[in-house]
Amino acid sequence: MKMKRYVKFFCYILLSLSVVSCEDYLATESKSTLTEETTFGNLDFATKAVYGVYEQLTSNPLYDYNFMFYKTDNDVEVNWGANNGAVYNISHYAATEGTNYLQQVWNDFYSGIEKAHLCIDNLPKSALWEGEHANEARRLYGEAVTLRAYFYSELIHHWGDVPFKTKSTQAGDEFNLPKTDRDSIYEFLIQDMKEVEDYVPWMSKTQTTERINKAFVKGLRARMALAYAGYSLRNKTFETRRGRHWEEYYKIARQECKEVMDSGEHQFNPNFENIFKNLHTYTMDLT
């Protein structure tokens, strides 16, 4: 009788211990929350993650509404609204500490950069990179790299030298980054985009203007090269000067533009004046 009792007892202990000793017991998985592996291991999810980067452009402080009030009051356009304690002040370069739209623009661009970094870091590591969808994966990678470059270029236009990071943020990182000289940023990004140019197809293949195509990448590269090579007001010294290797970059700009023209993939408006005329008569540019 007693023996039977002890046998039973030990059986139970063993049963429960076997569950506990399995360290995996505490590991959890939820099918609704996706990790980096699951998101970038699946083409559909990876595409939607890149869409998430595009979506950053649609935020209210950015291209949805407020961004149009920046960089106005120049020889080309003027905002007629008076200072209103809000975004109009930014138009007139009269922002105060209460105008938090500037902070929002900064936050949104860096948020977009981080989203792009998650794609840039994870796509080459994922199963997609060498599988049957290798081309698609590379196209997504190219889009993310280009978008990152685009965000940084806007940041530089507005603030000059800014903190520069090339990887996604991890928990133990040093978050307080110093400003990086814009020349270094431009050089890195322009080179980066060269590497992904081949990944992104021409519009004739993508059949849409909603996503980045090769012409966009080349065009952005050219633009950034021009900005780098041209004169800009420097933060620390207040000099106005060109990027350090400016001759090279003028060449890059010229070459990129030439390649787009020669490719035959796009038509061009033959008259520069037409751009302004179309804009001010509210007609579409049909070329």
């Binding site: 860096y110 948020s111 950069i113 990071k165 943020t169 990182d173 978050f175």
Partner: peptide, 10 residues
């Protein structure tokens, strides 16, 4: 945390 990390809080 500084928003240049891409996040404003942790």
């Amino acid at each position: 945390i500084p928003s240049s990390s891409g996040y404003s809080t942790q």
